[in-house]
Write a protein that binds this DNA or RNA. Structure first.
Lengths: 126, 126
DNA sequence: TAATCAAAGACAAATACAGTCTGTGTTTTC
DNA sequence: GAAAACACAGACTGTATTTGTCTTTGATTA
């Protein structure tokens, strides 16, 4: 239930992008100094957002980062997932006979949680 | 969005307690060997569940642990909260002038998330 | 009063996280 | 077609968190 600092940064970045409506191409250096973190570290986080298709990047002299979706489609949950991943939350090692009696219960609950967060979009940043 | 192993254990424990309807007093040693973890470590997790009022413990010869609430009132969220706590999720360090323009957005979203998990009880274990 | 049990906390080992450094590949401009 | 501006990738280090053990203390029952 806790988020890493990287996720925190990512949420701030996305919120910042969304707020600057006119502007649509942010380059690394100004962003980094604005957020008080090193360019290379910021780069790592931005790359994760790129891979998650939340933003896009263009290399070269006038390159930079920009949003990929309209702001109303960007959810809190998507940003979190982009950084934290959606790795296995629960293991099943209780039963020594191979099967796990409560595995299904766990997985169902987990799935519900994820779907709910995704579909209902309680957590849109804007 | 990830949970620690301790939370995972806690969810398994709670689910196990709930499944064993007839039985209503579990002592540490059998539980520990059933779950393949050391009694002392299990004890730590159980103690956290006791403090969160999800289970109760009685010391002494015929002591042990048992559920405190009817099973339909035990939520996924409560168990997670019992182990992980509800510490601050987001920081606000973007703005060098003291204020943080997006802080409210963040905190509102966080609050919604927590309330939603709590109230709607999507995640009841049973 | 001895056996059985839970609670608490100090402690070490393992893992995850935050952040830096170095190097590579790409696009534009001159 | 260099050179500058930029993104991308990954190895690496120190620190923080988590996992798990050990030991002691305190409570309850027979």
């Amino acid at each position: 239930m806790k988020y890493t600092k990287a996720t925190d940064y990512a949420l701030h970045i996305m919120a910042y992008f969304i707020k600057q409506e006119g502007h649509n191409n942010f380059s690394l250096q100004p962003l980094a100094s604005h957020m008080n973190i090193s360019p290379t570290y910021l780069s790592k986080i931005l790359t994760q957002l790129v891979k998650a298709d939340l933003i896009q990047s263009t290399a070269g002299v006038n390159g930079g980062y920009s949003l990929r979706k309209p702001k109303t489609e960007i959810s809190f949950y998507d940003v979190i997932k982009a950084i934290e991943g959606s790795g296995a939350l629960f293991t099943c090692e209780m039963n020594e006979n191979g099967a796990c009696p409560i595995e299904k219960v766990m997985r169902d609950a987990e799935e519900k949680m994820v779907n709910d967060l995704k579909e209902k979009r309680f957590y849109n940043i804007v």
